[in-house]
Design a binder for these strands. Structure first.
Lengths: 332, 332
DNA sequence: TTGTAAGCGTTATCAT
DNA sequence: ATGATAACGCTTACAA
């Protein structure tokens, strides 16, 4: 379709620098990649030539030659939520420190064509992959297997991760929240959550731990939807209820609506969110929530990947669990 | 540092497919890139071979050869804010439909070493660049100039964009908000804002339009900081005040604190935010805010870039303004 | 410490 | 419509 007239992107190449510095191209390459193997004097001359010419190495050529792209592809559903933004940000930083660029691809929810995305991404020959969740379609698994690329999956656990995994058990989160509520003397439980696979797992764990979850409503992903859903749900909530929301946004919606309805928190209604977004700390009342260390998740994922890429995979387990904790605030 | 033993990423290459299909490599390449130039029968055989072998084309080799990476690099300060997440998401989608991958790089605020990041990104030879804001350091400008890569800058305006630009005037936003407040009979103004360059510009415009902005407080970026800042500021606010916050998060902090202090909204205090985040619609009272069409910004940026890459840059202006509007809700 | 030669896997270009 | 050949800009492997 597009047919640009092949413009010279950056005329300056390694041979130009080599000529200017009076050395062989290979020496320029060494100055850039293994400076310790070049004499200081030569290195200085080469660097001067690089600066003078404004040389920017072509990593695409280097990658083809070395068969290492020094690039990691990360696939996440969305960056619009702090849920993924945080680990992605820290993963990117950590990989950057190790000399890798991270290429971010957005999949949206619905694993319909995750395989297609993975395929597209593999075409760029990343040295490694960061994936969200631990459920892969058979097609995706096949692709990953034949590509033989190190893979880290985050945000979830699974019996059989594709390769490495850094996450936590969402059902366990639900169970812990239920246990926390029970310890507070609650006997009536409700769950309000989004329909994505991990939110559902948290709801399932909560129902197990809560023994008698009186109400489980699904679907809302936004504050406004949560308010509507809670308004509908509230009618059935006759006595003191402990509600677990699948995200802080939903918890906030519930609390906003509860205030409008004159329901007292935490006396008549106790609420626990998930994610520990800034909103939960900043809102009044401050929202009790489950904190997951997203930064640590990103850093850990990077460490695993870097270890593998450096060939020292032995020291690292293939599965790492990221801790979570309930942050008790005003709504419980 | 890392020295992996050069593993065969995906053994299958174009010559393998060609051999399996009984054609020349070039024919396989044509099936993939210009199928209309291959006879249906041959194409079918080739595709069968591709599927059978699980061939994933090596775009890194293709890019070196064709000098087109089919990749766009996007540099944004952060994805943790919906401010940037939205246009980035829509830009990515739109470029994807045009056959380009978007590689996202996070710069953080502070243009300290933006040039370094740009340099790193240019090493991958992107076909185009998406940058945030319109202020480039001399070093960055030099890099971009010598790279001769199409550049779109978003989120701002400038007299001299680097190349193409899709944004809006932040001072004008401030002036419009001031005008809106004045039309409502306000005479006392305050601004509470983050210290980044665009927030500052909105505050400047607001001060111009408000004639007598009584208080301008800077720094807060989070809800909690905004609450503290407002509490300090509130003492000086003796009469009915119209406050413009540099983001909806800050507006929310102000409103939360105002409620705690017993300040009635919008009677004693009118508040307008910026960004039209989900929170503003979902909160109670719903927050009046400035809506900027981030989706449109991303799509427009993509259109400009695609047009340029397709060689038909003439039809498009180099500057496009994205509309913004005040969304009137309960806090004014 | 530095250089030479031979690819890396694909596509542009020119033939057929 | 298909093929042969020569790059693309760099790095690996080996030599000096």
């Amino acid at each position: 379709m597009a047919s640009a007239p092949t413009p010279p992107v950056s005329a300056v190449k390694i041979t130009d620098v080599a000529a200017a510095a009076g050395v062989a191209p290979m020496t320029v390459s060494r100055v850039l990649n293994t400076p310790e193997r070049v004499s200081p004097g030569t290195a200085e001359r080469v660097r001067a030539a690089i600066d003078a010419l404004g040389y920017v190495p072509n990593l695409i050529a280097g990658g083809l030659s070395s068969r290492r792209s020094r690039m990691i592809a990360a696939i996440v559903p969305t960056i619009a939520s702090p849920m993924f933004a945080e680990p992605v940000q820290s993963f990117t930083d950590a990989m950057g420190r190790a000399g890798y660029h991270v290429m971010l691809a957005l999949s949206g929810y619905g694993e319909a064509d995750e395989a297609t995305l993975i395929r597209a991404v593999l075409a760029r020959r990343p040295d490694g992959l960061l994936l969200t969740g631990a459920r892969r379609s058979p097609e995706a698994s096949r692709l990953l297997a034949t590509a033989r690329v190190p893979v880290v999956e985050i945000w979830d656990t699974a019996e059989q991760p594709t390769d490495m995994l850094v996450g936590f058990d969402h059902e366990e989160v639900g169970r812990e929240v239920a246990a926390y509520f029970r310890a507070q003397g609650h006997t009536q439980f409700a769950f309000l959550g989004a329909s994505d696979i991990r939110a559902t797992a948290r709801g399932r764990g909560f129902a197990q731990g809560g023994l008698a979850a009186q109400a489980t409503v699904k679907a809302p992903g936004t504050i406004v939807e949560a308010r509507q859903a809670f308004r509908a749900m509230a009618r059935k909530l006759t006595s003191r209820t402990a509600l677990f929301a699948s995200s802080d946004l939903i918890a906030f919606g519930v609390l906003t609506e509860a205030r409008a309805m004159g329901i007292s928190v935490p006396d008549q209604l106790a609420v626990c969110g998930f994610g520990d977004f800034e909103l939960s700390r900043g809102a009044s009342p401050a929202i009790t929530t489950v904190h997951v260390d997203g930064i640590a998740m990103g850093v850990l994922a990077a460490e695993h990947l870097v270890a593998r890429l450096a060939g020292r995979a032995e020291g690292h387990a293939h599965r790492a669990l990221v801790p979570f904790r309930i942050v008790e605030r005003d709504t419980t």
